[in-house]
Nucleic acid binder design. Structure first.
Length: 135
DNA sequence: GCCAACGTTGGC
DNA sequence: GCCAACGTTGGC
């Protein structure tokens, strides 16, 4: 099972919105590298929900509810979207500042490439974030 | 509000 | 097909 991080502005769609809806289609990813990552997602993969913008923190965990499917709104037929469902909110959000302060994350794309909206999370980093969240 | 990073566009 | 110019994004 692979692990990922998806970014979204909470003003646009927050983790609370996802918990309310029960499931949603993760759409609007247009960047080529982000799309490449998105196509690699498999049903059952775990995904961190990162609130970008003002908040800049990982706030929850969700799960890919299905494999990626073609984006119906994309005429080229090359883009995909992924259905996700919420699993649980993190005990406490893990902020970007916390992540940047920890050398373990120095090589991670979240830090190195700020504008990437879909990125893989190495297993060790995932566990470290869960640990940071638990205090 | 500014600026750096990066992606995209358009002229050649 | 290259690359400069431009626009957008996201962090500070």
């Amino acid at each position: 099972m692979a692990r990922w991080l998806f970014k979204e502005e909470p003003e646009t769609y927050s983790f609370a919105d996802l918990q309310r809806d029960g499931t949603t289609l993760w759409t609007g990813v247009t960047n080529a590298l982000a799309q490449k990552h998105l196509r690699s997602v498999k049903k059952g993969d775990r995904v961190f929900f990162y609130h970008t913008g003002k908040e800049k923190a990982i706030v929850g965990v969700m799960e890919a509810a299905a494999d990626p499917v073609p984006d119906p709104s994309d005429e080229t037929g090359k883009r995909v979207v992924v259905a996700v469902k919420p699993l649980y909110a993190l005990p406490s959000p893990v902020t970007l500042a916390t992540i940047k302060a920890d050398p373990a994350f120095a090589q991670w794309e979240l830090v190195k490439q700020a504008r990437l909206s879909v990125l893989p999370v190495p297993e060790k980093l995932w566990q470290r974030i869960e640990k940071l969240s638990n205090g």
